[in-house]
Amino acid sequence: MTAQQWTLTLVVASFALYIGIAVWSRASTTKEFYVAGAGVSPLANGMATAADWMSAASFLGMAGLISFMGYDGSVYLMGWTGGYVLLALLLAPYLRKFGAFTVPDFVGDRYYSQTARIVAVVCAIFISFTYVAGQMRGVGIVFGRFLEVDVDIGVYIGMGVVFFYAVLGGMKGITYTQVAQYCVLIFAYMVPAIFLSIMVTGNPIPQLGLGGVDIESGIPLLERLNGLNTELGFA
Rank of each mutant, 00 (worst) to 15 (best):
Y111M: 00
M136P: 08
V121W: 03
F106C: 08
G108D: 09
G138Q: 15
Y112M: 02
Y111P: 13
D109T: 01
Q135D: 06
S128T: 15
S113R: 05
D105N: 05
I127G: 08
Y131P: 03
I125L: 07
I127Q: 12
R117F: 14
S113E: 08
A120G: 00
A133S: 11
V107L: 10
A133I: 08
A133H: 05
R110Y: 13
V119Y: 12
I127C: 09
D105C: 09
V107H: 05
Y111F: 15
G134N: 09
M136I: 12
V122K: 01
C123D: 04
T115I: 12
F126W: 12
F126Q: 12
D109M: 06
V107E: 08
C123S: 08
R117S: 03
R117I: 07
F126V: 02
F129L: 11
Y112W: 06
V122S: 02
V132S: 09
V122A: 11
S113T: 09
V121Y: 01
T130A: 11
T130R: 01
I118F: 05
Y112K: 12
S128N: 03
V121R: 14
G138V: 15
M136S: 02
V119N: 03
Q114M: 15
I118M: 07
D105P: 12
A124K: 05
T130D: 05
T115V: 07
F126Y: 15
V121A: 09
F129T: 10
Y131D: 03
F129K: 00
V132N: 09
V121D: 06
R110P: 13
F129Q: 05
Y112G: 12
Q114D: 13
D109S: 11
V121H: 02
M136N: 04
V107N: 15
R110A: 10
V122E: 10
F126E: 08
Y131F: 06
A124W: 01
